[in-house]
Amino acid sequence: MLHARPQLISAKLEKLHPTQITVGKLEVALKRKHWSELGKKERTAALASHWFPAILGPEEKYYILDHHHFGLALLEEGVKTVSLMLQKDLSWLNPVKFWTVMDHSQWVHPYGTDGTRHEFNAIPKHLEHLQDDPYRSLAGELRRAGGYAKDVTPFSEFLWADFFRNRISSDILDHDFNKALVKAKKLAASQEARYLPGWVGVIAAL
């Protein structure tokens, strides 16, 4: 019989497992900057009020479902412990069944820096091994700039990142981020983007 586990638990940040392959390192840097500007009491309050949704997987390992950027930023800032909100205990499943359930529940995003899907074993074992996807940084910055609305759709920012991937060259993104952001804002308001979560454009008249 499975034993009940507490919903809110404390865990070592370095031992948490990601459920995606990439992050936008620019977004991580911005979160680090914000954290560095907080006082001791503000940091304590932030950690007390911010929890990571997680799944308990095989071998009693915790897999976080969200806030990978914040988690990596905290890790790089030397934070040791965070709070998890346990969503489900799947520790009794074998690894193959575990990843099947994770996939069907939209709790995993096994897509690389080129936007293509990879095997589950390509997902890093630790937060510090997450790869940088500049298009994810662009999508995150665009949302902060009001280019689209925050949406509850799982991995919505990655959908936007993939939309820009073949519309904005990597050269522009690497060498003139502001120019790329201006172009992204225009594209985000276009009819092409109306299928994306949080789209704030105007539906064209028939």
Rank of each mutant, 00 (worst) to 15 (best):
W99A: 05
F70E: 15
F52E: 00
E77H: 04
P110R: 11
K97T: 11
W51S: 13
T116F: 11
H50G: 00
A45T: 12
W51I: 03
T44R: 05
D114Q: 09
H109C: 12
G112S: 13
S49Q: 10
G57V: 04
S83C: 02
A46T: 00
L90S: 02
A48P: 03
E76Q: 09
G112C: 10
D66E: 14
W107I: 09
A45G: 12
H104N: 06
F70R: 15
Y63G: 02
L84I: 09
G112V: 04
V79C: 07
Q87S: 06
Y63T: 08
H68T: 12
V82D: 01
L90R: 04
V96I: 07
A54Y: 01
T113K: 11
K41R: 14
H50M: 04
E59W: 01
P58D: 06
A45D: 15
R43Q: 09
E60Y: 08
R43E: 00
L86F: 04
G78N: 07
N94V: 04
R117V: 09
H109Q: 11
S91M: 04
G112T: 06
L86T: 02
P58F: 09
H68R: 14
F98T: 13
T81N: 06
G115E: 05
E77D: 11
F52H: 00
T100I: 07
L93F: 07
S49W: 00
T44D: 13
L93I: 02
E77V: 04
M85W: 03
L74E: 02
R117F: 05
V108W: 09
H104A: 07
L93N: 03
D66F: 12
A48M: 03
E59I: 01
Q106S: 15
F52C: 02
V108G: 15
Y62V: 07
L86C: 01
D66H: 13
G112P: 08
A54V: 04
H109L: 09
L56W: 01
A54F: 01
Y111N: 14
P110N: 07
K41D: 14
R43N: 00
W92Y: 09
P53F: 02
H69Y: 13
E77T: 11
A45E: 12
K88V: 06
G115F: 15
H67Q: 14
A73V: 05
G115T: 13
T116N: 12
G71E: 10
V108I: 14
W107A: 06
